[in-house]
Design a protein around this nucleic acid. Structure first.
Lengths: 262, 262
DNA sequence: GGTGGTGTTCCCCATGACGCAACGCTAGCG
DNA sequence: CGCTAGCGTTGCGTCATGGGGAACACCACC
């Protein structure tokens, strides 16, 4: 009987095990009893599922006889997953160079499920990463990456993906018309800026990564504290970012002239 | 074709499903038949497992009736996973054990802003110790931690980070060529030593901590008075330190074999 | 149009996963 | 200090459930 999300797949025990992963992703840490309650199964069942997950390192215990949380096997799998995305593979060296060059964090995002999904991140300057965004879903209308990913879609497609426009700060775009107007600008100038729109004090600029067909398949961004990225510095960074993005697009087989069947 | 992992956990079908993920991580793409063969099960069984995985977006089909590969759900889960951990947290128990085991001070350092930043410290057995390094910025060219943090960077990146090479003692490296040569050695042997280079009478050895991607994200060091750490004792401690560092790397998701390219 | 490959579906059987209950353990509290 | 209540963990008998065989739909090559 459905508590959360159930009957997704065919094999019951596998479905339950994978639901355990979702639960842990949501709550961070959980004990066997808690998981069992959420799944609606007996403790022992939950325990066996968790143990199996642990055997593959997708889950790990915080300590002996302790709670469980997601494990590093997931990171490994996700790495293998994104590594197959040729976007990430091709972009990584460029990201690294860009991050080092401007001392800010560089991200790669793709369109996934009504949101921008961050698939890679290289932190600038300091090796101690402030916050790892990889795997996070970010609202499309409040981020530079989101705007880039949307900018070449049909208007009704944009409206389908962006169902609501919640305000995160006073600068967040909340009107559909404003959004569409901004997307036109982004499309025209080839990059997007978002200042304090998702979070006060957070600024980001983004540029599109294109496949051989010319489609926008991903977005590359530079982000950092608004204090470090005032208007003047943004103006400096934009051409650097666009150049880097173009280089990645080039590696992916895109050529400015080679518009395939307009 | 070796069955890589078998009977790891308790629940058979879950175990098989997770093995499917490993297989896909290894080969990139695979069809139902291929997966079934590798698992040693019937096609239909493999199909059901894959379908369940697909329901949770851990796997996706390249096209209709096509092969399967790892999905974006993994990236999401991995993001939730890495958000909860950081180097210090994972390293702390190992540091404590290491410090107790060898009776010297153990430090964790990361690259930050043209210097090594000490982010954690566990003092060794002997009671009162020198001052606390945590939060201190330390020159990269005169410390074992610095050498480790630099050793896998590009040569020009190293030169950018190390602007000048001031001499702190008569043993400090002051020539760029010497530094680059030493970094190559560190990279090759997997650890660094610094004797009397920052301060007369102070010896330290360091080894790299790697992320799931294989990048050197931090450095772990053992340091103490040169009197207590003569060459012979350093030789004893190096394998102990490297083992400890490898263990932390492992916890962070790094696996020697898990080089993604193949 | 044959032939061998794929991913997919159905159905029946026995295997293997489930719920139960009991265990060892820790923590809190009277 | 023992008593209880909660935890994660384990063995066991039973029956739901997942597995395998075979047939299906489809594609590509010959």
């Amino acid at each position: 009987m459905g508590n959360t999300t159930e009957a997704v797949g065919g094999v019951q025990s596998v479905d339950r095990a994978l639901t355990v992963l979702s639960i842990l992703a949501r709550v961070g840490e959980a004990g066997v009893t808690e998981i069992a309650a959420e799944l609606g199964v007996h403790k022992s069942t939950a325990f066996r599922l968790v143990t199996t997950l642990e055997g593959h390192e997708l889950v790990q215990q915080t300590e002996d006889r302790g709670k469980y949380r997601l494990g590093m096997g997931l990171v490994r799998l996700a790495g293998a997953s994104t590594a197959r995305l040729d976007v990430v593979q091709e972009a990584r060296p460029v990201c690294r160079r860009l991050a080092a060059e401007c001392g800010e964090t560089v991200n790669i995002a793709v369109l996934a499920d009504h949101a921008a999904l961050y698939v890679d991140q290289v932190t600038g300057g300091s090796g101690l990463q402030s916050h790892n965004w990889v795997g996070q879903h970010i609202p499309l209308h409040a981020t530079s990456n989101g705007k880039v990913l949307l900018c070449e879609l049909e208007a009704d497609e944009v409206d389908r993906l962006v169902e609501t426009l919640p305000a995160y700060t006073e600068h967040t775009i909340t009107a559909r018309r404003t959004l569409h107007r901004q997307l036109a600008t982004v499309r025209a100038q080839g990059f997007a800026v978002a200042t304090d729109e998702l979070e006060l004090g957070l600024t980001a600029i983004a540029a599109p990564l294109r496949s051989a067909h010319g489609d926008v398949v991903a977005s590359m961004s530079i982000s950092g504290p608004t204090l470090r990225l005032p208007e003047r510095r943004v103006e400096e960074l934009v051409p650097v970012l666009v150049d880097a993005a173009d280089e990645v697009s080039h590696r992916l087989g895109w050529h400015r002239q080679a518009a395939v069947g307009g």
